[in-house]
Design a protein around this nucleic acid. Sequence first.
DNA 1: CTCCTTTAGTTGACTTTGTCCACATTTAAT
DNA 2: ATTAAATGTGGACAAAGTCAACTAAAGGAG
Lengths: 144, 144
Amino acid sequence: MDKEIIDDIRQFNRFYTKVLGLFNTQILDTDYSLTEARILFEISERTECIANNLVQELNIDRSYMSRILRKLERQELIEKKSSTTDNRKNFLFLTKKGEELLDKINIQSDEQVNQLFNGLTESEINEIRISMLKIKEKIDKNKL
Amino acid sequence: MDKEIIDDIRQFNRFYTKVLGLFNTQILDTDYSLTEARILFEISERTECIANNLVQELNIDRSYMSRILRKLERQELIEKKSSTTDNRKNFLFLTKKGEELLDKINIQSDEQVNQLFNGLTESEINEIRISMLKIKEKIDKNKL
DNA sequence: CTCCTTTAGTTGACTTTGTCCACATTTAAT
DNA sequence: ATTAAATGTGGACAAAGTCAACTAAAGGAG
């Protein structure tokens, strides 16, 4: 693989680290961390979500996840319901309050994306989108 | 801006967070954090690099940066030389040892990129590269 | 020059985040 | 039946990051 291409890719990685960093610092406006937001999001997206799914998807230590979930439970953002078929598992659900918070975070996240791209034309935005889909498709196909 | 496009972009952001996360956990193989690696990298790329440049580029708190740099200095990876024209500034340089470490990290990082893309054809890799350049170009043009 | 502001960096005290290891349970596998 | 693997918890700790107060130098504006 060509050195020049590797450099371009690494440059993109540095660049996109910064972009994501900007998004993440703004999430803190809600008193919740990006990780907590991601967890709420994943729980809402999945059916029969268990802690271990989140551990794998988000690459977080099991014990740490356990504590985060306990915190979210104490804050009444999520509920645990133990599986009837496997007593090791707790299925995770958003409470009403959790859903409301996630809605708020989603609106804010959409707004962030809007702001990053405002100033670009429809067609430029679409070029970016196509490029993102392309990158994801190729890497997904290959790994992960 | 279309809801569907925003969702695609946010999906890419989640996806690429994971990709970057994979890279970053592997950096830890060298006993140095990603942040430390980035700092060495930036110092090597810049002429007359000062702490504040790094604070801005990497979005790190001034006090924290001060401590990181002191640590790198104690480990003899960098040196500070105070500016002759402005006594507030310390120019940062890699020591021989710092350069050697950065070389090692660069080799390892190149290898990581290689591994992520191995299995894809030349032309697929180039499509990814083109897509990355496109994204960076458009966002750079617009912001940052 | 003097007063005020800005820039650069440091220090102390602190919180948040993340890691490691041992452990208890429950299920799956041989 | 015994062993191994999966799920989750808790303690103890280390790393990462934050906040406010501070020093010191430089850059003005009058």
